[in-house]
Design a binder for these strands. Sequence first.
RNA 1: GCUGGUGUAGCACAGUCGGUAGUGCAGCUGAUUCGUAAUCAGCAGGUCGUGCGUUCGAGUCGCAUCACCAGCUCCA
Length: 637
Amino acid sequence: MIEVTLKDGSKKSYQSGTNVYDIAKDISQGLARAAVAAEINGKVTDLNTSLYEDCTLNLLTFDSEEGKATYWHTASHIMAQAVKRLFPNVKLAIGPSIENGFYYDFDSEKSFTPDDLTKIEAEMKKIIKEDLPIERFTLPRDEALKLMENEPYKIELINELPVDAEISFYKQGEFTDLCSGPHLPSTGKVKAFKLIQQAGAYWRGDEKNKMLQRIYGIAFPKASQLEEYLKMLEEAEKRDHRKLGKELELFSFDEEVGPGLVLWHPKGARVRMRIEDFWRQEHIKNGYDIVYTPHIGRGKLWETSGHLGFYKEGMYSAMDVDGQDFYAKPMNCPFHIAIYKSRLYSYRDLPLRWAELGTVYRYEKSGTLHGLLRVRGFTQDDAHLFCAPEQMPDEIRRVLRFCLYMLDAFGFDKYKIYLSTKPKEKYVGDDQMWADATKALKEAVIAEGLECDIDEGGGAFYGPKIDIKIKDALNREWQCSTIQFDFNEPERFDMTYVAPDGTRKRPYMIHRALLGSIERFFGVLTEHYAGAFPVWLAPVQVKILPILESHHEYANKIAEKLQQLDVYAEVDLRNEKIGYKIREARLEKIPYMLIIGDKEVENQSVSVRSRKDGDLGAMNVDAFISKLMEEIRTRAN
RNA sequence: GCUGGUGUAGCACAGUCGGUAGUGCAGCUGAUUCGUAAUCAGCAGGUCGUGCGUUCGAGUCGCAUCACCAGCUCCA
């Protein structure tokens, strides 16, 4: 007999060799039905694992992260089995679970059409109905290779497994796949599923490799959960900044102007100006100076900076100016360095913090453009910090704190921080510099009580960096803030400062963007607020709705008063019913509506309707104004 | 750039078997003078993304191209 300790701490005895699934049934039929995998002594494994020793056992349901992963992984195997049945010549690559569902990559002569996906779905339903038991087995390497002799990608994977690795397979009916598991006990466990889309994907994510056919899917234990998920996607679509940008007249693209080139409409520009005004104010408060630099620069500059060597594919081709090459800037740094180089700086002048809302142009592959989130011309909220080595750790902490303050001001409380360290091969600067800089970055993150993912070797060749990514409506991460060391350019431009001992020393240079690019930031911000910007950012902050023509004069007077206070106020003078005007103002997501009728004119008051709380009743005009101004001043969310 | 999909009025969409285009909203005009999410009527609006081809005839079929959408790769 063995003793099994359950999650709640209770212990039960079973015959050695008892299957986990049977234990689940012994605990309760409901649990057995809901269980998808088991955690034995902390290790996630199949439900039909037999136990031979005392252990702790935790039964995982779909609700757990591991449970979902197992469920989706099995769904991907079912899909692969269906594809193999329908298209026997297709070769299998890999098919993992992902954050939202699963995919499987196939090497197929033809790509799958939407029609094929329907057929595959039908075949999957059959496989689920067959309720094939899923069995795990292991093989020694030579036998494993023999078994997979017709699957070249699997051969490649087996050959790369460490010598001592256990090579496991999962078999369901006629279908066997190399897989470490775990899996559901049988195919019938998968209930509701849907194949979402087909897409091309390079083998191992490398552009140089063959493009495979990937099919994405999602699965749930209940049909209602699938429906809910699909509904959630629909809801997310409503928050899409591209859709809102059109509806709220914030920005547009024009085919004739060119892809990835943003046209900011008056309403979008109003929001942008508020962002930029705030940004400028805060930079001045934080010890920055503002600089302005040109949009193009001589070829020589980009040669010195190294951009023509390392970043050429991101730059637009040269324009001829009096027989010389000039390039549109993909980055602002060489110009800021040029300002630095215009005179001699002493250690007493450091640190220097120079910021610019610098508009840059970068060539992005056509397939990567995405609304405001990836464009070809954008304005970075750029700054460069030049400091002495001993000032560096302090500067990093400062800039990180500033960064978090900015994100917080815009209501972002969920983001992910990545720390990228020295690349394995190509890099500049000595190891000590890299170590110091990386340490400073890491300590700054820790000092702020935050966590970060380490992207080992993911730094640029010129220095380590911290990136902060924010998620869009569909949960996709977009890099906004970035703090990057640069060991390259100070060297290339031979930047120096005079040290206390009179010698020339090389300053540390740090690139940083807090919002990233105004375009991208505005895009994620729009999705974050679902277009309902807080009062301080709203393109129309107050809309005044007179009921009758006789109220127009008073309404205009209030609008004027608000405009004098730098408030975006509009009056709806149309000959429409009040309900209609309110409906439109609501669709425009305007934070405050002032309804003006006989009563208001008589009492010199306004009836306030807020976007958030509805009808607030009548209010003295000055009382409303001070409430509004306070909300703007505090940038209430 | 690659794989697949989409492109019809300002916006959201319909358009059968190939027979020269419709609906709703918005717009304009008129009527309506009204208190917290849509008053009524009339009018106007389109080289069906663009080009070439097949056909007696193309929004519809084929090819090319541009743009957009999802994903891959890349990145603020």
